[in-house]
Design a protein around this nucleic acid. Structure first.
Lengths: 193, 193
DNA sequence: TTAAACACGTGAATC
DNA sequence: TGATTCACGTGTTTA
């Protein structure tokens, strides 16, 4: 930590222990340097990727760090935008489902799920299911019916005011078809989820 | 732009017009200052919110800017994480779709396939599919239609002599409904596989 | 030793 | 004016 450029040759032998000249801004300049040094230290502490301790490199590292952060922000923003764009449809669907639910309630359809299974003759049967419209519900219902071993001969599906009416005439393909009431309860469970 | 702290009192009258002393590192120090100044300028150019042109404030502004960027990155990351968490279902659906496709190929419906998709008005459309009866085929078809973003308003399914006639009146729930012919080909692929 | 980095005190400039 | 900032040349330290 060397002394400054203050002229060291003009040593004052005549002035004794007194100070030589003392610029007015000497102390102020010291404060300024101190402050600046502190700032640089703070900046250095904030930047993670430090290549060197020198003053120039601190600033350089800070620059590269800022650029990295900017890039990261941009990338994240893009990803988020893309995500939002793709999930807009999902949101719409959900909103539509809510609308369906509200509409259904508005029209006083209180019965959430209703199922009826009737044997007709032999393995022939008749199914009627009423439920609130919901994504995947119909597919699950048909899958369940298929798993019960029922072949759908003639089916009508009608959607109205957020409700779905499923009516079908079918036939069991296996010998041991379950009881009607059992099937009904099973289908109810499926639809109720 | 004043001259430096070089001792001005030790003025050399004897050396005439020649340079006075010229420290060895004078030029190097000039280069160093130049470089440092350039870095600071670069940093200043990179930071948008500049409160003051002074050297200290440039660094201060850079610090606050970095902190802002960090915060922004964190926020965006959290949002993205949340979004990804909510869109996991979407991924699951897609994976399930692939699985179902494989399973469908295992079951296989190879003959007698016919599909027709007609736009009616806006997102409303009419679908007709004829195919050979096979276990699970109907379920897959309905799931495919659901995946296309089509709400089935009114549907009739009739089975006769091993063939299935599927007729439906539906409506797209998403904005970007594919072209009729495209959907037709998609349904054909689903059924044929 | 050389070369680079640094802190210092100072004069000038800016507000 | 007075307070503050800056660039400069220098001596010293460090690698």
């Amino acid at each position: 930590m060397g002394g400054g450029g203050m002229d060291s040759e003009t040593h004052n032998a005549d002035n004794g222990g007194d100070e030589r000249f003392k610029s007015k801004n000497l102390e102020a300049e010291r404060r300024r340097r101190k402050k600046l040094g502190d700032r640089q230290l703070e900046l250095r502490a904030l930047v993670p990727n430090i290549t060197n301790m020198t003053k120039s490199t601190i600033i350089t590292d800070a620059i590269t760090y800022i650029e990295e952060l900017k890039l990261t922000v941009e990338e994240l923003g893009n990803q988020l935008l893309q995500m939002e764009a793709t999930s807009v449809d999902e949101e719409k669907i959900k909103l539509k489902e809510i609308d369906d639910e509200k509409e259904m309630k508005k029209h006083g359809i209180k019965v959430e799920v209703e199922a009826e299974v009737n044997h007709i003759c032999g393995t022939k049967l008749w199914i009627r299911v009423v439920f609130q419209k919901k994504r995947g519900a119909l597919t699950k219902l048909m899958e369940a019916i298929s798993l019960l071993g029922i072949d759908l001969i003639d089916t009508t599906i009608t959607t109205s005011r957020g409700a779905v009416l499923f009516t079908s005439f079918g036939q069991g393909i296996r010998a041991g078809l379950p009881e009607a009431d059992q099937m009904r309860k099973y289908l109810l469970e499926i639809i109720r989820d």
